[in-house]
Design a protein around this nucleic acid. Sequence first.
DNA 1: AATGGAAGCTCCTCGCGCTG
DNA 2: CAGCGCGAGGAGCTTCCATT
Length: 245
Amino acid sequence: MRDKVKKLLKISELSSLVGVPKEAIRYYIKEGLLPRPQKTSKNMAYYDESFIERIKAIKELQKKRFLPLRIIKNIIGEDSGESSLNEIKTLLELDGKIFKPIDHLLNFIPLTAGELMEKTGLPLEELAELEDMEIIKPFLENGQKKHDEYDTRIVEAFARIRSSGATKELFLTQDFKLYKDFVEALAREEVKLLARRITGKISQQEALRLINNVFDAVNNFVNLLRKKLIKETVADYANKLKKSR
DNA sequence: AATGGAAGCTCCTCGCGCTG
DNA sequence: CAGCGCGAGGAGCTTCCATT
């Protein structure tokens, strides 16, 4: 291996290396997709090798994923490290393929809120509250709001919570935002961790198999841990109460 | 069908600064 | 001092899409 000193490039060199016109590179900088180069004088700027990977990533996201620059900026702007670009690529490869065995109802027909109410017995008012909290998110289909299979299953599960005793008199719909907030943060961290751990180590197929195999096991792990911690927390409060008397 | 606006460049001009 | 390469910045072009 040669020394890892980053080679500095002039815009013309960078341009011919990646096959993107220099004006376009400048445009990406202006739009915030690329960082500002090192300037050595008023009319001279140098670009390190990390620009090559970033520009290639921009072009790939444009050509293969048809993403607008605004979105690409959000994706690659999040963390600007070089390794995170590879992790983003890993996640893009998994996009749309993850949890295929769970989404087995390929011909699921999206439902309106009215149809969801009919199917689950949950009143429209509560459906609207779930939508306000972004626990369910309808999409537009010929100007009509429709819910996909995940929304439908979530509403079914919520209806089960209600019918099993957690009634409106005891718990507000908004009380369940607790779960959405926690699970959202958890999912974000899980995805980041997954990308970091598997990038460059296992193939896409192996990753998909791993996720499917491990998911239920982790759910069970979390379920048990949660029960244990609830039990311990109650015991903890009880102990404190005894001591204070 | 016409109009407007946004996105994503591309072209052009200007002035700076390095080299010979 | 001339010639050249360079970056900055703005005008303009093309395509797509939404609105009227």
